[in-house]
Design a binder for these strands. Structure first.
Length: 824
RNA sequence: GCCCUCGUAGUCCAAUGGCAGAGACACCCGGCUUAAACCCGGCACAGUGUGGGUUCGAAUCCCACCGAGGGCACCA
């Protein structure tokens, strides 16, 4: 490290870091709560970290990018709120407690202290007055408060269902937390379990979650919007009622193709549904069904998701009646029908649905073509889903798909056996967790009153100390064993009752934290609506794409609920979203087990904070992954040293009249400042840095071989470099600023004003093409008229030669940069 | 299987229908040095994955294919 001092001619990164840290603490340039602050507001938000240890390379990238945006808007004169907090509840704390006997509270707060210190050194422009931890009762009491408000509105409810269960984490998971049949957190295969759990009714908001995306179009990555759309999975079709022989009530199915109703040749119910058990009961098929159900339960989620798997099922010896033609069709049970999508039962149209066709072929069931697509699926084995004239369909014959759907809906609704319907893939959000380190669910179970809300004045329901509790996962909540804590009188009748032993999914914590920043110390409300109105919605959100569905969907849902409650007056919390890529090593994600882990603390020790930040931002477009094998933190440091040395060469005094300076250098400076600003505002930070590098190179030359160090333009250029660098390399920039004779902070110096007159070139090069080939270059004034330029181009000897006497057909003039002459 | 994104010097990346190169890494060559490092300067390197099309003009728009990455996937 001492090597750095010697090799950079005075640019000693570590000395510079030490010099300014304390000064910044003192001046707190990024405090956003000053009452007399008249600057317009802007809210830049980084996704808050989970305190599982010290900061790592991923944090370094994300926070460097967010910081560029926040610092840039400060330079542009905004009062920027750029806060940070800790997403401090969750399994790692608890697992550390189990593994090493550490108190989750202590473990968590120690990590937070370490991360906080690292962020300070990393020079993040956070407003340190607004931090909080979600594991503080002062915060999570509002989780409970929101939960109770939703409970009152019927948006929080308890139901028994087949839920996702992670055998390793020993807790249930929301649908969103199951990735390809495995636990999102630990990758263990998820199993199903029948449990009574708490849910938030996000499905009530499915349409609004979908439709409000129109507001986000263009401001969020398309990819994220697409993922959310897929996840919500709205489909339109119809519900159709089928009578079942020997059953008083008909069974409703959902289909997107009601027009193919005449082609339904059998009926399938989900094997694991209550309906299947009911229909099988008492029939001669019951034994076969029970055996089949057992086999289905053994099938892992992974295998179940494999769509190439052969179809299985069992005939229930029951029959359904097709409501349009009275046909008697057999009822089967199979696991290719899902119990929790639609109604858990389908009409099977093998000719026009591949899954149904596969099933029909496996069990020798008939195939009836009702849409003529020129091929017979029974022969080809390929179901036809295309449009075509309907056949064998009574009144639908001859109609195309759209007309047939309309016609059949008409028939069904007239007869009262069906109607148009919408279905969603989205399920309600399961929020109960059978773990300790989370927000207690504020419900008391009373033998006589049932589920009773904890009265608001008794909030927060504080977690009991972990000491003395067995936190080992065993499938039931550790809190249930905290008898003293759990035993309370019923708030309603006063009889002995027990607290709900489960804790909330930690995604509840992060679903509204961005609101708390506006008013983080409020003890009487989650936030003051007035404060929230001032700052929100978030102008710019920065975070990883890993949260494309989970956190972002839940947050959007919460915002809409709060809007309905009148607590906020907007429906979308994050106006703009930037997804940064990951930091990888040699093409693959860094991990200890792969042996390719690069430690942030090591990199910082070798290259310094500024060089690491610069490397992250300069590596490429922010949404691309940064491959640490492809970048050069040493090169970044070299550039910073080069820029820094400029500040020592300037001999003019601060405040010198720059308008008298060298014109060429001034033009370069204003061009660089202008272009860098445009680039930053369109998230092309790497390009902005390239502009700064260019200006450094030009200024170096001007000092050494041009106008010389005393020219006022040199001062103007170097000051511009310092300010441009202040958004990405704050230590270097601050030191340059001081060496230029200014007081700190450069962060508040203001983005240099660009003089439009200096952006205009005296002469521009006009390319003259003949038939698209460049034949000549003309230096012309930028204001040249099209006709003048055309004449000039046609007079060019090179053009005349290239035309070789042939007639000119067209001349395309794009003054002042291009003329294209098209010969006949 | 369906959908999306992306293929530009040895490498990372610029170029938003108009001269393919802004910036950087690595390499090489000079200058500085007793020498080296640092520093300064410079050279060189691709015709844009492939094949068609639209256009006066295509890295950019359209189609097909190849390759890479990502999302969804028995959702009726």
């Amino acid at each position: 490290m001492s090597e750095l001092t010697e090799t950079s001619e005075g640019y000693d990164v570590h000395a510079i870091q030490e010099r300014w840290l304390g000064v910044w603490d003192e001046l707190a340039p990024f405090r956003s709560g000053r009452p007399d602050d008249t600057r317009p507001h802007r809210y830049v938000l980084d996704m808050f970290p989970y305190p599982s240890g010290d900061l790592h390379m991923g944090h370094a990238e994300a926070y460097a990018l967010g910081d560029v945006i926040a610092r840039y808007w400060v330079q542009r004169g905004f009062n920027v709120m750029h806060p940070i907090a800790w997403d401090a509840f969750g399994l790692p704390a608890e697992n550390a407690a189990i593994k090493r006997g550490e108190d989750p509270v202590r473990w968590t707060y120690e990590n937070i202290a370490q991360q906080r210190a690292s962020m300070r050194r990393y020079a993040c422009s956070f407003d340190w007055d607004r931090t909080f931890n979600t594991c503080d009762p002062e915060y999570y009491r509002w989780n409970q408060w929101f939960f109770l408000r939703m409970f009152e509105r019927g948006l929080a409810y308890r139901k028994a269902s087949n839920v996702n269960w992670c055998p390793n984490c020993q807790t249930v998971l929301a649908n969103e937390q199951v990735v390809a049949g495995s636990c999102e957190r630990c990758d263990t295969q998820v199993t199903k379990k029948k449990l009574t759990q708490w849910y938030l009714r996000i499905t009530d908001y499915a349409d609004r979650l979908l439709d409000d995306m129109a507001q986000l179009e263009g401001n969020w990555p398309d990819k994220v919007l697409l993922m959310q759309r897929n996840w919500i999975g709205r489909s339109t079709g119809a519900e159709v009622q089928f009578a079942i022989e020997g059953r008083p009530e008909p069974v409703t199915v959902y289909t997107t193709r009601p027009d193919t109703l005449y082609g339904a040749t059998f009926f399938v119910v989900a094997a694991d549904s209550d309906l299947a058990a009911e229909l099988a009961a008492g029939t001669s098929a019951e034994a076969a069904f029970t055996a089949y159900l057992e086999q289905v339960k053994q099938t892992s989620e992974m295998d179940r998701l494999d769509s190439s798997r052969a179809k299985t099922g069992v005939f229930l010896e029951r029959y359904a009646i097709n409501p349009v033609n009275g046909e008697r069709i057999p009822v089967w049970a199979s696991d290719y029908v899902l119990a929790d999508y639609g109604t858990g039962a389908i009409m099977a149209v093998p000719a026009h649905d591949q899954r149904d066709l596969d099933f029909a072929r496996a069990f020798g069931l008939p195939v009836q073509v009702v849409v003529d697509a020129g091929e017979d699926p029974a022969v080809t084995g390929i179901a036809t889903a295309d449009d075509g004239p309907h056949v064998n369909s009574g009144p639908l014959d001859g109609l195309g798909k759209a007309e047939a759907i309309e016609a059949i809906l008409q028939v069904l609704s007239e007869r009262g056996t069906g109607q148009a319907a919408v279905n969603y893939r989205l399920r309600d959000w399961l929020i109960s967790r059978q773990r300790y380190w989370g927000t207690p669910i504020p419900i008391i179970h009373c033998p006589s009153c049932g589920e009773v809300a904890v009265p608001d004045e008794q909030l927060p329901v504080v977690l009991p100390p972990a000491e003395g509790l067995d936190l080992k996962p065993k499938g039931s909540s550790p809190l249930g064993a905290a008898h003293e804590w759990a035993s309370v009188p019923c708030p309603s009748c006063g009889e002995p009752a027990t607290r709900d032993p489960d804790t909330m999914d930690t995604f509840v914590d992060s679903s509204w934290y961005y609101l708390r920043y506006a008013d983080p110390r409020n003890e009487t409300a989650a936030f003051d609506p007035q404060q929230v109105r001032q700052w929100l919605p978030v102008d710019q959100y920065v975070g990883g794409v890993t949260h494309a569905i989970l956190h972002l969907l839940y947050s959007r849902f919460f915002t809409k609920v709060l809007c309905d409650m009148g607590l906020v007056d907007f429906t979308e919390p994050f106006t703009r979203l930037l997804n940064q890529g990951m930091v990888v090593m040699n093409g693959s994600a860094m991990s200890k087990s792969r042996g390719n882990l690069v430690r942030l603390s090591d990199e910082l020790a070798v290259h310094g904070v500024d060089a690491i930040r610069l490397t992250m931002v300069f590596a490429g477009p922010p949404e691309d992954d940064v491959d640490w094998a492809d970048v050069s933190p040493g090169g970044s440091r070299k550039f910073l040293a080069r820029a820094w040395r400029l500040s020592g060469d300037v001999t003019s005094a601060p405040g010198v009249d720059v308008t008298a300076g060298d014109l060429a250098l001034r033009k370069a400076t204003h061009r660089a400042v202008h272009d860098a600003g445009v680039a930053i505002e369109s998230f092309r930070f790497n390009v902005a840095i390239a502009r700064a590098m260019e200006l450094v190179n030009i200024t170096r030359k001007a000092i050494d071989t041009g106008c010389g160090p005393a020219d006022p333009a040199v001062r103007e250029a170097v000051q511009a470099v310092a300010i441009m660098l202040s958004v990405v390399a704050p230590y270097t920039a601050e030191d340059m600023w001081a060496r230029l004779g200014h007081q700190p902070c450069v962060a508040l110096a203001g983005w240099p004003e660009v003089d439009p007159a200096l952006l205009v070139e005296d002469l521009v090069t006009c390319v003259v093409q003949v038939a698209g080939k460049v034949r000549d270059r003309l230096d012309v004034p930028p204001s040249i008229g099209a006709d003048d330029l055309r004449d000039l181009a046609l007079a060019s000897p090179q053009v005349v030669a290239a035309l070789a006497g042939s007639e000119v057909k067209t001349v395309i003039v794009r003054a002042p940069k291009l003329v294209n002459i098209v010969p006949a």
